[in-house]
Nucleic acid binder design. Structure first.
Lengths: 196, 196
DNA sequence: ATTGCGATATAGACGGTGTCAATATGGCGA
DNA sequence: TCGCCATATTGACACCGTCTATATCGCAAT
């Protein structure tokens, strides 16, 4: 086990410092030098653990996706009916996005992340795979549609709604007619289910 | 009419230079200094027309929204049936996003733009208003849903699909079962229409 | 136990950035 | 024609990412 000199685990400390800056000041505040300052090391120390800023941000996004997926899967597994599992997964996803808007905004900034990174890519693929699984577990739909189209549609609905709640926070969270959370209405419509 | 000294219309020249950089090198290449260089003025000249980088980017995004809305509305108005107008609007929207990925990515980066800007905000509101109008013009739906929910859902579907086409370009553009463009399938499903 | 070496951290430098202050310059109205 | 005000320039400052050279720590082999 090779370890750094005065911390022992600088890599983790840098990711933690990045998360603090991300949560409090936004993604543009996450600079190599600011992260190094917060971790108490020199401005060039991070280069030993992350070759450049993109790699650091990718590691941070990877950790965020782990948290988000962990919370969503836990919520899903607390339910047993197929639709309830999808709904709980989506609710937990949106909760995470609203609780950590800075993180969520960064997680989909593929222009500043490394989309080729195997860890990050694996988590994103895992997310889509989860959605595909949950859709496949539903009572078979009346219409036959390419499963990829369904995954794209559901992912877009949830991501778009989360983004709007973050960036345009005056949007009411409930459907004015049904009184249900908007994401529930959108899910049922997209899946052709009764809104009740 | 007060005009600059050797250009006469530096403000427009700066926006044009920004668009060139945006199209060829991405949003991170749009810096005040690079834009000034391309416009042939000193690095501090833009400050007279835009108080800071955010203001410049907001003006560029505003121009892009004007182009996008212009194209989408023209496509819409070339059709007469209510659903065809919505479909043509959406198709033109996606065409613009795919033709100008750098612009499209920037247009929704509310963290680097000024969401309070009246011109930008007016165009975004205009976009949502157009969607709401087109939905209201459809034969009345079987289910009553908050119009705002419908606008959010349709906007999210279209934006999410455009973003995925840009950032994950391996996604096939057509639904594998129906053979229709994915956005058409998603629209029909979201509106409860037959897929034919 | 000492030595040596590789991994890790530091200090310094370079060119780039946004933004500010001071200065220069141009055109237009009085 | 003169003067003024909007506009452009120059220069400076702090911060950024990244590179190079140097120093230091800790483990392992002697």
């Amino acid at each position: 086990m090779k370890r750094g000199q005065h911390h022992g685990a600088l890599r983790e400390a840098l990711i933690d410092a990045s998360l603090q800056l991300l949560d409090t000041e936004g993604v543009e505040a996450v600079t190599i030098r600011a992260v190094a300052r917060r971790a108490g090391v020199s401005h060039a120390a991070p280069i030993n653990h992350f070759p450049d800023l993109r790699a650091l941000l990718t590691a941070v996004a990877t950790r965020c996706f782990e948290h988000l997926l962990g919370a969503a899967r836990a919520a899903r597994d607390a339910r047993s009916d197929a639709y309830g599992r999808l709904e709980a997964f989506v609710d937990a996803y949106i909760d995470y996005a609203l609780a950590h808007p800075g993180r969520y905004r960064m997680m989909w900034r593929m222009d500043i992340l490394d989309p080729e990174d195997p860890a990050l890519d694996g988590l994103v693929e895992g997310l889509y795979g989860d959605v595909e699984e949950m859709v496949a577990a539903l009572p078979q739909p009346t219409r036959r549609i390419d499963p990829t189209t369904v995954v794209i549609a559901l992912s877009s609905l949830v991501h778009g709604y989360a983004s709007m709640r973050i960036d345009r926070n005056f949007i009411p969270a409930s459907d004015a007619i049904t009184g249900q959370p908007r994401q529930h209405v959108m899910l049922k419509v997209a899946l052709g289910l009764p809104i009740d």
